[in-house]
Amino acid sequence: MLSTDHAQVERWRKRRTQLAAATPDQRRELLADTARQTRRSVVRMIRTAGQGHIGGDFSVADILTTLFSYTLRVDPAAPSARGTDRFILSKGHCAASLYSTLADAGYFPVRALETFMRPLSELNGHPNRTKIPGVETNTGPLGHGLPVAVGQAMGARLTGSDTRVFVVLGDGELQEGSNWEALMAASHFRLDNLVIIVDRNRLQQGARTEDTNGLEPLEARLRAFGCEVRRVDGHDFDALIEAFRPAGENRPVAVIADTVKGKGVSFMEDRVEWHHKVPTPEQTDQALKELA
């Protein structure tokens, strides 16, 4: 199990304090800077490991940044402590983005990121809760995060905790039936402490979602399954912050975050092949230049 980096936790706490007091412009700038660092970290990790899922790492980066730098009530020095919020990345293949975000918050030392996917590293290609603080459940196979999040939301209620549970799903992942079982339960049990975020980048491994097994009309579908649906630009920090506010109604919140796969690097944006392509040394330099 990796251990807390207390000095980094302090830096992260200071930044959160700054963010809470910042003007909207300052806040946007600070969050954008953090997200840029996450993407730079992802590029280096995937380049070094020679594998990874860079497109989805980039589409979800602004969502993860908003959650961990602003929205979530968490304590990286005491993950899963009573009264703190819970987070699950159901699209576990975007582990590089999650690891960079967790390291930035001090859940474990930033230098551990260099071991991504190396033999015996704690940082597997998909996150493991028994090795990484801040990971709530092992994801990787799709359609697993939401049912566990539903159980956590029920657990929070049963134990009288005001914990909110946030789960990020890939959009292609919604083709898995287990999600729809879980959505039925989430609305039936009126889990208004659950926030389901769909990273709607419109691409899955081999093609566009709508050319594979279409999800639209997604808003109407999620609403029909009992969610309070909020649709936002998944790269607009102000909109994300607003979308992550507590439920207005007595039911789960579903945030459809419209995103761009490969967001931030011109030659990767909205290109299906960058689902899991690895940048060449030249492409790495170019990507880091664009993310400077």
């Binding site: 899963s80 819970r86 709530e136 459940t137 359609g143 697993h144 939401l146 049912p147 566990v148 999040a149 539903v150 159980g151 956590q152 939301a153 029920m154 657990g155 929070a156 049963l158 134990t159 905790s161 039936g177 287990s178 079982e181 879980a182 039925m184 339960a185």
Partner: peptide, 14 residues
């Protein structure tokens, strides 16, 4: 499938 995932989530709350 949801039932087993829910079990995991409940266990993570002690």
């Amino acid at each position: 499938q949801n039932m087993v995932g829910v079990g995991a989530g409940l266990a993570s709350f002690g």
